[in-house]
Amino acid sequence: MSLSLVGLALASEGESEGFHAPSPEEFYWPIFGSGDWTFTRPMLMMALSVLILGVLLVTLTKKAAIVPGKGQWMVEQAYDFVRNGIARDIIGSKDFLKYTPLLFSLFTLILLNNLFGIIPPIQYPTMSRIGFPIALTLIVYAVYHIAGMRRKGVGHYLSGMIPKGLPKPIYALIIPLEYATYFIIRPLTLALRLFGNMFAGHMLLLLFIMGGEYMLLHGGPGLKVVSVGSFLMALIFTAFEALIQFLQAYIFTLLAATYISDAISEEH
């Protein structure tokens, strides 16, 4: 909210002096090709993140030592966090091991790609391109629905989504709402939450940095002073972004685990 107000204010002020507030087009970074099949910079970053994670994780855990070295210990901290803190606690002892690789992959991939948003010289969160959150959401969506249907059978799986023991007339309203939630809104919010946070965060940083730069180069003495504040804000929000980036990776993984647990749990 504050973002769009500031953005509008700066835009309207800057219009006469030629300042352009950052627009969504700033997020489109083609490298080669055109149209829907353009190879873009976020794709390169995604490939890079898979390469980094793959090489790092495999080399650091290759020894599988009982007494871990520093590298293995660090991987184990992250793995512990996902395995015991998310998968085991939410899915439960019985089934969590099967889904741990999925959740660990999700968490590490999202976290690294989010952190790209503040790591120089990349400074661009991959997940601010909605194609990537949608890709991950589709995978989670397929996994939990298929797991639920295989565990309970299609009929039981669908009827299990509706809470039992409510007054009869209410079901006319509840049933469409539950199905809309399970099949449409949940994946939508899952993807949009991640995308929105990364998009807005990056936008905010762009705004402060570009605004500061413009004021410093083109503004009068008063604006030059203000530009210092703008850069300072960029710095503060960078630290804030780091927190958001971690939190969003955590929430995405947590919700994926919750949906899986919900789909395969017996009671409801």
Binding site: I90, G92, S93, L177, A180, T181, I185, R186, L255, D262
Partner: peptide, 25 residues
């Protein structure tokens, strides 16, 4: 690893789905 029953109540993050689903639907 035994003794973790799993969580049947979704976390509060997921309540957003319900809050949005009603008005949208």
């Amino acid at each position: 690893d035994a003794g973790h029953p799993g969580q049947t109540t979704p976390p509060m993050w997921d309540a957003l789905s319900y809050v949005l689903a009603g008005p949208l639907l």
